[in-house]
Write a protein that binds this DNA or RNA. Structure first.
Length: 134
RNA sequence: GCGGGGGGCCGGACGGCCGCCUGCGGGGGGAAACCCUUGCGGGAGGAAAGUCCGGACUCCACAAAGCGACGGUGCCGGGUAACGCCCGGGCGGGGUAACCCGACGGACAGCGCCACAGAGAACAGACCGCCUUCGCGACAUUGCUCUGCAAUGGACGGGGGUCAGGGUGAAACGGUGGGGUAAGAGCCCACCGGGGGGGCGGCAACGUUCCCCGCAUGGCAAGCCCCACCGGGAGCAAUGCCAAAUAGGGACCCCGCGCCUUCGGGCAUCGGUGCUUUGCCGAAGGGGUCCGGGUUGGCAGCUGGAGGCCGCGAAGCGAUUCGCGGUCCAGAGGAAUGGUCGUCGAACCGGAGCGAUCCGGGGAACAGAAUCCGGCUUACAGGCUCCCCGCACAU
RNA sequence: GGUCCCGUAGCUCAACUGGAUAGAGCAAUCCCCUCCUAAGGGAUAGGUUGCAGGUUCGACUCCUGCCGGGAUCA
């Protein structure tokens, strides 16, 4: 409870995650940033509201494969987001991880985590300094 | 031992840590909504798939009879909630056999089609050939009474008989053998095949037997069609409720509503199911109330059901049914089963060995519930188990 | 998730009631014309008719099962 009050400012302190479920949330993300992250694609966008939670969604289209391949790709992305986003994600932002055909399921899990970390620093390294300082 | 056929079952296992979805409960905060925390339980498949059939369920439509249209099924009997599924039987085909396969009603109800080739293709036909006859009688042979005559054969042309043979074709109007004939032909006979009728067995499909008929009447119905049987339409994104938002349409109520009226009703017009008949309902102008197109969110439907699974008993050849006991086993809604580590591990690869096997590597097929059931079909690494058939060897 | 529709040369379309060589335009290749290119003319090649079975003498066409693509419904 003490954490919940003290976190909204910090970038690296743990924040709560929430899964995106509505179509309009994904449509909004399509207008945000889009960064390739090795085995997948990362979309990120500042929600511009007062809620400090981090939103995260997962997309795997039919290009990824059949239902088994799509589910497997989403599970690995979900696990990666669970491990990385509370530390490196920024409060008040939404993220979407988009699976790719062969790579998302085949990549080593540690490499998958690195992909996500690099992509996040790429997003916030450029945008945050510009947006927040002025 | 080798090869083959049929049925049933499994389809990676165990554990640690960190997570996800969901049911029930405890504790704390809060007026409540809700939030935080914590305990116990459950959490993908044999196909969850394709959406090809059949239902449950929901909404819409619905007066009855007759006729018609459309779609489906198609040997017979049984099972089932139902089926195009399953079981048993029949018939046909394949296999030495176990066993497997089959859209398997009707082509004397009718219409249509059968290209090319071929003489002829649907109550067919005469090309070659065979036989016969006629004409001119070339020509050949033989005989004689020898410039010739006669007999036989016969090129060529015409008429007739014939469908056995050749050839064409997917298919040529029963097949084989014999008799018969001018040559032939069910022309006649035997057997096979076919048709009709009777008897017997069977619920039936059908089988069997006797008698009669020499027996002209293809193939296609997954062409139209006929016969028998079945079927109202749509689908959980159905449907119901709540909230936000509001047009040109819709619903309900009141008055009025063609003519006559004894106020019960009668007679008209128009519209309403594919058509007809009978019947029923609605409509004509004005006012009021409510809903509403498109977009978006929440709740219900939502998992307890012709239930599944396990065990026992009974009926039946079997599908299946009946009885008893136990048990409950996913319920999401951008959609839950994952990540990682350890032990064991099939296929496969390399090496050693005559071999059983051993050592090292390797790391698990097809595939993910979306309202729920019964089937079918399709995909599938590998494994377990039961029964049966053939061959070889031994006893 | 449900429902419906469509697959023919590289592309856009034909092919009768099932009847034999699956045809046309554009594109492609080669040649002619031109100083060169375009246009024009001539010739050529290109097809398991989405795949696999079945019915039929014969299938692009009829039937069944798969595969791929598209549309639509709250």
């Amino acid at each position: 409870m003490d954490d919940a009050i003290s976190t909204p400012e910090g970038v690296s302190s743990p924040a709560s995650l929430r899964v995106l479920q509505k179509r309009r949330q994904f449509l909004a993300l399509n207008r945000g940033l889009r960064v390739p992250a090795g085995a997948f694609l990362l979309q990120a966008r500042d929600r511009c509201d007062d809620d400090p939670v981090i939103g995260v969604g997962f997309t795997c289209s039919r290009k990824v494969g059949n239902a088994v391949a799509r589910n497997r790709a989403k599970r690995r992305l979900r696990e990666a987001a669970r491990l990385v986003l509370p530390d490196l994600g920024q409060a008040g932002w939404d993220y979407a991880l988009i699976g790719r055909a062969e790579a998302t399921a085949a990549r080593e899990f540690e490499a998958l985590l690195d992909d996500l970390r690099k992509a996040l620093t790429k997003v916030h390294g450029s945008v945050r300094t510009k947006g927040r300082k002025t």
